[in-house]
Design a protein around this nucleic acid. Structure first.
Lengths: 123, 123
DNA sequence: TCGTTTCGATTACGAACGTAGTCAAGCAGG
DNA sequence: CCTGCTTGACTACGTTCGTAATCGAAACGA
């Protein structure tokens, strides 16, 4: 079996752990409370599903668990980006860029930044 | 309610209709048979779910339906791209670009193309 | 006209998801 | 020591998804 898919709600939990880890379920829930309206129980369920999928580890610390990410954010981001590029842009990243440009999703700053990156890459 | 989400399997059906429309359920299923292993019934279910979501129209033609897309591909692509950028790159497209670059997802051609686009946009 | 083929509609059903309640066990405090 | 709170485990339940069988009506062929 390939690496299991991570759902939207699960991803929100991962983001919290990627910011700082390890943390207890309660700590994770506290930070999530600012954005999502989830009960502590909901967060615990998501954490244990993530543990089953192998995306986080839970190490006993006294009578509670400390959760920390196993999945690396960069890898997750890469998988998701590639999925999008494959599904919608025939697997090539340049058309994605062209699309974003056409839809006006770049600011002047973005463009400057990108130009700099391109120069760097092409040298 | 926002525009309803389109699932992966449904998206595959949309792609077929975006290539050519209108088509009957059987025609759509025939083309999909090349890639996915779906029965005709499965495709019909997906088409009617898409119709419920307002993503395709089904116009009677004799005793059968002709399906055609209502949702514009460009708009769908844009929604999905924005979702990704929002979820994973803080809503800014430049970091997406930086990520793709870092992960070596651009060919020399891609870069040339992008450089051209950037120049055009900044002038 | 009557059976057969063809459609769409309805129904099905297990897995995954979003969201959460309940329970048992252990630790903390009196 | 006993009692209560904290915590993970288990269970729950409605929805969406993937995948499809079945059913009733319409059309076609003989």
């Amino acid at each position: 079996m390939g690496p299991e898919r991570i759902s939207d709600a699960e991803h929100a939990v991962m983001e919290v752990l990627w910011r700082r880890a390890p943390r207890t379920a309660t700590e994770v829930a506290d930070e999530l409370a600012e954005t999502r309206n989830w009960s502590l129980q909901t967060v615990k369920t998501l954490l244990s599903r993530l543990a089953n999928k192998g995306a986080v580890s839970h190490d006993q610390s006294g009578r509670r668990y400390l959760y920390r990410p196993i999945l690396i954010r960069e890898d997750y981001v890469d998988e998701e980006s590639k999925r999008l590029v494959d599904r919608l842009f025939g697997g090539r990243a340049a058309p994605l860029f062209a699309h974003l440009a056409e839809r006006d999703h770049f600011s002047e700053e973005d463009l400057a930044e990108i130009e700099r990156l391109v120069k760097e890459l092409r040298s």
